[in-house]
């Protein structure tokens, strides 16, 4: 028996993205994807755009899992050795408080934005790309929260960071920008 030849990366990616798409028959396309033609948007050929990163879901998780194993090994070692006692500059703790209120919620918003876009795009290429981006942003938020939660045991000011998302002054401009970007608001 002849073993079938191994597929190339481009073919594998195509089969696991475009190859998994189907035309809906129970409902019309414009009911399923109401935003695709919102305010007169016209996309002539959804198949023209393809994600340059040819990462399929299995490969994505294989590599991200390996990265996370390394990260969590560092976090374990840091906490077991009371790393928070040996910071070279206490200002670092302030910096990570700013990070947790200023960056992490934006990553989470990006996750939600891309999840929405992924749901609403009828083209399978950008839809899969948006889904991958959405996952990646959620993973960023999660690893940041896990990393900083160790400091929460020893320092004040790490609680209620999502509550602070609407309140810290330094977020006024970037938060407004990302809110608009995420909702296709006015730029």
């Amino acid at each position: 028996m002849n073993a079938p030849a191994k597929l190339g990366l481009k073919q594998r990616y195509s089969l696991l993205t475009h190859g998994l798409d189907w035309k809906p028959s129970y409902q019309p396309m414009d009911k399923i994807y109401p935003y695709a033609e919102f305010e007169g948007i016209k996309i002539h050929d959804w198949s023209k755009w393809e994600d340059p990163f040819r990462l399929t879901m299995d490969t994505y998780w294989k590599f991200q899992a390996e990265k996370e194993r390394k990260l969590y090994a560092v976090l374990d070692s840091f906490s077991q050795n009371n790393g928070q006692m040996g910071l070279s500059d206490p200002k670092y703790v302030n910096a990570i408080k700013l990070f947790l209120t200023g960056i992490t919620p934006a990553e989470y918003q990006a996750h939600r934005g891309f999840a929405h876009v992924g749901r609403q795009l009828p083209g399978v290429g950008p839809r899969v790309a948006a889904q991958m981006q959405s996952l990646d942003e959620l993973r960023h938020a999660q690893t940041q929260i896990h990393t900083l939660s160790h400091y929460n045991k020893f320092f004040d000011g790490f609680h209620e960071f999502t509550h602070q998302h609407d309140r810290v002054w330094y977020l006024s401009v970037p938060k407004s920008f990302f809110d608009d970007a995420r909702t296709s608001g006015p730029f």
């Binding site: 190339g8 990366l9 481009k10 340059p52 990163f53 040819r54």
Partner: peptide
């Protein structure tokens, strides 16, 4: 990080 358009294969 990276900058440029990507073409990726085996």
């Amino acid at each position: 990080s990276m900058a440029g358009n990507l073409d990726e294969d085996d």
